[in-house]
Write a protein that binds this DNA or RNA. Structure first.
Lengths: 214, 214
DNA sequence: ATTTAGTTACTGACAGCACAGTAAGTTACC
DNA sequence: GGTAACTTACTGTGCTGTCAGTAACTAAAT
């Protein structure tokens, strides 16, 4: 089949070269979207022809998937000691991430654009994002459970909803922030919302909107 | 110049025809994205050639802008009596919208995809979404102020952040829901998060995450 | 009421580019 | 000398936009 470069021995410099390509691809896909981001532009950013890129990654689809995976790895390496923070620490970590993100709009945009694009027909990134959100939700849920335990309260049924909500605010704020950086404070707003949601889980109060309203 | 059809008299049936096109365009753009959604597909859905569509809208860019505007109008007409709900009623309205959205994934997807796509370079929908969010944020902020007044409390500084947060959760949840409908409850989760945020505004409590953490 | 003139709503054909992918050849490593 | 890392050159397709033409409608003139 077309499966070239399987086991074989890539040259030492090659790995770094591929990483360059992945970085460039993330930048282009981030700023122009996947469908609208041509291989040629990625190529010229690493001083290559687009055929060279296809040599390394086989197809544009596969390139996207690898870009996504690569970012994940890079992020994980960023976390000291590799350990997933637990309980309170995870939420603090999320807030810190929001602060850090204000310094890297490129990456923020890449995730915002690519995650939304992934829900479209036949998008090669869909599976990645599906799994990513599932994983993240469960990590957040776990943090909630730990916090409940620490406080000696039973884990409420709202945990799953809260977990999805926490991720949702962060993502949604990113879009608003990208559209209007002058008027949206990404980090502070994320912190506010996360605190609101965590509070609602740990210490629920009656709805200010009256009885449930479907 | 190319500015034909200026003042003159469009045929009576034409308006309805254009609306058909706008509906079809929303569907295609929604399911495949703007860049990835070809005119031909929109055309065949209304039994026309793509040239016919360009006759009506001039360019694909302009079609997108009109699609967005059209949805807005359609939504506004949907609200009984045209009045913008105030105070508590606005939040109840948002929750109801979330419930309603569960029955129309197409529209939800269109907004999710197009709003994120709009932050990319040169996207013709950008201005629309910029204005839309600005407007929505100010409506939500106004509702907060009304609620504060009703309760005889001073409007806190958190209102702007809360407003952005409310919209952000709703949007972010939509993406997660579109990716994994089996595991994300769009409406209930929106309700939960909105209540959490409203509560945090009206009746703030110390952060469960400890002192502010930048 | 019918012609006339003009406009609108298209179709069909095509220009023309942009893009992903392929195949064959070239260089340089190991 | 074999294979990895390319380039050049090319193919084929997909897509937006243009253009000329046509049929149907509308308005005014006769």
């Amino acid at each position: 089949m077309t499966t070239a470069r399987r086991a074989s021995n890539p040259r030492p410099a090659t790995l770094e070269r591929r990483r360059e390509i992945l970085r460039a691809a993330l930048e282009i896909f981030g700023s122009k979207g996947y469908n609208n981001g041509p291989l040629v532009e990625i190529a010229e950013q690493v001083d290559m022809t687009h055929a060279g890129i296809l040599h390394h990654f086989g197809s544009k689809d596969r390139l996207l998937v690898e870009v996504l995976r690569y970012r994940d790895e890079a992020d994980v390496e960023g976390i000291e000691g590799q350990h997933i923070p637990d309980g309170t620490e995870l939420f603090r970590h999320l807030v810190r991430t929001a602060f850090a993100n204000e310094e890297r709009p490129g990456i923020v945009q890449a995730y915002a654009v690519l995650s939304a694009e992934s829900v479209t027909d036949g998008n090669p990134g869909r599976e990645y994002f599906e799994q990513r959100y599932t994983q993240l939700r469960s990590e957040v849920a776990q943090a909630f459970r730990v916090m409940c335990e620490e406080r000696g309260i039973d884990a409420p049924a709202t945990i799953d909803r809260a977990s999805a909500s926490v991720l949702a605010v962060m993502d949604g704020l990113q879009v608003q922030w990208l559209l209007d950086r002058g008027n949206v404070e990404l980090a502070e707003t994320s912190a506010f919302a996360i605190e609101a949601i965590v509070t609602a889980v740990l210490d629920p109060r009656p709805s200010p909107l009256g009885p449930d309203a479907p």
